[in-house]
Design a binder for these strands. Structure first.
Lengths: 202, 202, 202, 202
DNA sequence: AATGAATGAGGGTTCATTCAT
DNA sequence: CATGAATGAACCCTCATTCAT
């Protein structure tokens, strides 16, 4: 590769600021992640520097989200793709997401906090919601999920997953424990969505 | 009891401020719920009034949480108590919580927003988490829940419930739709926690 | 009068801030009249105090304009009303406006500077322009002004008047000199608008 | 002159910046004409370029003024020179200045805005003022103007002219309308300064 | 018990200017 | 010649809290 494309997170300072922002958000939370704190964390002398590199706070946050998704996607995507069938993919998604905590705890915590607090819902959160919903519908059509309300399930399960991930990320346990938690949660979700056994549940 | 004791949320002004705070948080969100906005909403001429009646923002918020829990508890508790057995109570809790949206949408939204944003975890959230966890453990001992990780399940299911509730509270549907959503979510949770059927995982 | 109505410039601090703002604008000009400077001039410890009393910079400026107009109107109106006929009133307006410099030099300079720089044209400037235009039209109908373009004349003569006033206000001369300048300018305007003499001008 | 000397506004980049600055000032006004905006308008990647070519903001502005005067002078001077006599020249100046709006509306608006806002009075504005004053005195000596206060008249008439020009430049009308306005204004000024007719005015 | 003015820190953003490359 | 990152001050505004009355 002769010419390396310059992605929008690169250019040195920009990347540095984004990284600092992610760490600060992971540390003190979205609400207290001010430019001042981010600048200090990044070793910058003034907040003006951030405004110089980003159009505003929303812009910075959007870039942070994009960067985190890039990093986490690189970790999760192969694991999900390796699974075959709707059920296995659901399990793979959940387990990969929990395992991700071991690799990028700050990024994971920051992402969830940003998404939770942003007024304008990012494409990220809505995208994942739609993805789950669609996945459930497709699985139902294929007969591997029972005919529950796909939207309600998508909301409950994605946010439940987030909560487990955040809890784990707050004080990251070892890989084995993470794997166990991932398996537990996947079990929960697989059973919640599984087709009726003979006798029913109620 | 002939004379009702004056609870600590009463005394006129205090109650008025708490009510205003809850409504403001429900309307504009925790982050933008400043004393100024709350005072304006309560018809107060200055924020000094709030500081006079409450030790600080944390105090006000704590009282708000307590008040909301009092109100919501009055709605939910009878419904939960009416259910017999761990499974039925789980279902009752979930359905009551969703139904609550129809009665107190502002309170419900405010509570979840406060709990989500408070640095210091309130006794409320931890209490409910412990409650669920304990409920799961007891049910497992009784053989009506399968032997999953009670803590992970408690985290995932309580927050999933919250998310469904918040979504519903944002634009509250009619009672019938709320009942349907409640049933859907309860189904999901009951199945997730149900003991193995004869043939494995279904 | 038993109960004195509280006008919107009163209440102590508000009036003090308005006064300080007017003086600062007169001194350093609209562009450099920051809250910081105004607060310092008013003996306030922080700019927050100004924001506490006024909704924003625009609000403060609007109140300044209103206050100046109140003060200047009290000076000019009787003098204008005392004149009879369109020509005499034109002369009276011009002379009163120039004489005003001797009474309220800062207010006069501030007003013109605000009006000149405000993006949103105030009712003040447009009002005066319309007033002049209407006055010219009425005088033309009465045959005491010649049939010139009333709008162009209104623009040129009001701003010319402003310029003379500002120049005089920069280093206010004595009343006699002000009276002379007022008379000179009034002469200019009266002649510019006078009906044709027998021989014509061109 | 075979080889044209390179004036100080030329040299490519400088001229480009000056042109951009004039356009930006005409568009958004003096107050909001920052280096950032000018650089963006000029297609420059940073404001450093401007600081590199000009000693400071005042310098840039001074060069802008000089450039505008060069351009406008080229339009107005021949028209003024073509007129004979003090009265005719006054008329020619006014009419040429208004007509100029049709040719260089941006330049005209920018010039007046700069002159209005600059703390340090430019040689330009003072020069024109002195020019008018001198012209009036000379005409008075020649008996073609009446013996008014030359300075007061110069102030009032030049700024009145500016105001008419700015108004016209804000939404430039066609040449015919401009010519009419110019004639109207010139009439006003010629009459204001004309010697007494037999009967007097007062 | 209540008021409302005052405080001082901190929020994000824009600015003209500088300087190493 | 030219770049663009860096600077540091200033901008208006909002905040929770305090305190004399």
């Amino acid at each position: 590769m002769l010419v390396r494309a310059k992605t929008f997170t690169e250019s040195g300072r920009r990347a540095q600021i984004v990284e600092a922002a992610i760490e600060v958000i992971a540390e003190v939370g979205y609400a207290k992640a001010s430019f001042t704190r981010i600048a200090k964390h990044a070793g910058l002398s003034s907040t003006g520097m951030i405004s110089y590199h980003f159009a505003g706070k929303d812009d910075l946050l959007a870039v942070c989200v994009a960067e985190i998704e890039r990093v986490t996607g690189a970790f999760m995507q192969p694991r999900i793709d390796a699974a075959e069938g709707h059920v296995a993919q659901l399990r793979a998604y959940v387990e990969a997401n929990v395992a991700l905590v071991g690799e990028h705890p700050a990024a994971v915590r920051a992402l969830i906090d940003i998404v939770k607090n942003r007024a304008a819902r990012s494409a990220a959160v809505d995208g994942r919601l739609a993805l789950f919903e669609e996945h459930f519908r497709a699985g139902q059509a294929a007969g591997v999920f029972r005919p529950f309300d796909a939207r309600t399930a998508a909301i409950a399960l994605t946010t439940g997953l987030d909560a487990v991930v955040v809890t784990a990320a707050t004080d990251p346990p070892g890989p084995a424990e993470l794997a166990r938690i991932g398996r537990e949660l996947a079990d929960l979700y697989v059973r919640a969505t599984a087709p009726e056994a003979e006798g029913g549940t109620r």
